[in-house]
Design a protein around this nucleic acid. Sequence first.
DNA 1: TTGATAAATAAAAACGTTTTTATTTTGGAG
DNA 2: CTCCAAAATAAAAACGTTTTTATTTATCAA
Lengths: 330, 330
Amino acid sequence: MRKITIKEVAKEAGVSISTVSNALNNVDVLNPKTKAHILEVAERLHYVPNLNGRNLKSKTTKVLGLFVNSMKGPYYGTLVDTMYLECEKNGYELQVFISKNSMDMMTNILGKRVDGAVILNGWIGEEQETALRKEKIPTIFLDREICSQKISSLVFDSYTQGADAGRYLLTLGHKTFGYIRGAENNYDSSERFKGYSHVLEEAGHPLLTENIFDGFFDRDATYQATMKLLEKERKLPRAVFAANDQSAIGFMEALRECNISVPEEISIIGCDNIDISQWFTPRLTTIDTFYEKQGRMAVIQLLKLIRGEKIGTIQKVVGKIIERDSCQHA
Amino acid sequence: MRKITIKEVAKEAGVSISTVSNALNNVDVLNPKTKAHILEVAERLHYVPNLNGRNLKSKTTKVLGLFVNSMKGPYYGTLVDTMYLECEKNGYELQVFISKNSMDMMTNILGKRVDGAVILNGWIGEEQETALRKEKIPTIFLDREICSQKISSLVFDSYTQGADAGRYLLTLGHKTFGYIRGAENNYDSSERFKGYSHVLEEAGHPLLTENIFDGFFDRDATYQATMKLLEKERKLPRAVFAANDQSAIGFMEALRECNISVPEEISIIGCDNIDISQWFTPRLTTIDTFYEKQGRMAVIQLLKLIRGEKIGTIQKVVGKIIERDSCQHA
DNA sequence: TTGATAAATAAAAACGTTTTTATTTTGGAG
DNA sequence: CTCCAAAATAAAAACGTTTTTATTTATCAA
């Protein structure tokens, strides 16, 4: 049994291939009867169009691509699922491209495998940015602020989140502060740091370098680092802001292990409001970044760029503090 | 500035397009000097091959596809990341196709967008299965047992997992048992159920219908369902097996809310050994399903099918009980 | 030098579609 | 009937590659 192409369908139905194509893409130029007949034949032969041929000629794929270098962590699943929902609503497919090297990513984008791209944490540099700009590929960046005709940014307002966290802890009367930072060179982590430290500085309680800890956005890494820290018997700050909830939780786990009680001895506020933060004991005070919303907005904005309804902009999603049980007055 | 195709590169380099193609795909039939020159020109013009054209003609994509209907939950991230690693090692790309309808999925597979497919939870039926078999598309199923020339299954030995859980709880001397099942019609959930209930039955302590609870593999759903259940003041079984860790944790959270202590009043064993199970209090006794291993094995097996080195088989990954703090003697 | 062979390059065909252009068929008005 | 326009269909071109086949150029033994 040979491979069924549009040619076989045409032959079997006794029409030309262009007529089959028209029937398939419901162009309403056909006699309804012929169309029905062709569709019946296609169905019977189990014809499935070759997407490479189709996409090559039509220069469109109806696919949006999400480009990431990993899927680990509670964040991605939600992001993908909300993006999918919005794509489906608009007749687009969603495909996720995993890649730790920016070349594969660029090949897929510039090689026309998608109509538009959402880039989360490709380690892409100046060169790739300009390539995307020049080729006018509709693109949304989730991890940096850049914008051009076909490129939009949709980032968390991380600076303000940091500032809010700082102000909140100050309101509670704390005087010594710590920060658990995320991955190096990460936009969100460094913005949160800037906002946080700026507010503390202004209030006359600057963040000391020795109180900046590494968490890498990771629960386990933070746990390990904190345990190591605690071996040294050094004095900890009274209030801590973690760059994300996972770090906050890893931190609290280490503290619990060492019988340091939260929030009595240390207040801690996280960021992201991931599912688990409301289940942990003590329930984690955190900043809701509305990251489910981000996925939806990214798709909506990307479709506008594709359709040419809008040119690129930089949008910032503001967060909101969720008060729970991990912070208390000094 | 027009779009750069292989034709532009050929003209600029003063050679034919077939020569450019040869240079690009490092076929070693070219004069090294010409090849270097062509590569230099391609680089300078920022040439990127159109993947649709390439894949159309060459009939291969060097892409493996993972087909799922959702990405939520701690399981997927790990699966994807381990699959990616194995793909990369073998010169393949990994792309994840999200889709809640089986048609999109089939279009992508039969439409030749991937060289092989790993199917996790497409709701695919008889018809799709035979289509895949007939077309001889290399495929790995992670959610059912089927096999043919180009189709392999790689499932958890869920029956044995269930039986092991049952035996373990029996060993601890328990007499009344419960089961928190997963999504309806789910292979793993029903296999675990079969193994579990069979062992209990044989031991003379059959699982009562009233002690089968709905968890849908979901922490929150299980929590809600359990809270509802506890309103009724009915007697709970002394030992419970949950179809996955998330359910186990949702269950324990509800119990804690109602001041029922684990493991003193109820012993509970989960399944999967997700990250969080070792962090939860009490630390969850569970069955390690080695699902990171599954991702790697799936890719390895799929590549063998693609290369024609092997024909389809059904493989079962056996699990192992991890004893922690959520179970104790009756 | 010549001729044969190998090496290097070019030309043409093919992949499976959609799109553009051309042709045939149909349906009325006169 | 005949003719013309509209409707329906078919033919041909195009999309950007790789692969197959053909041609040119270089190499070297006689």
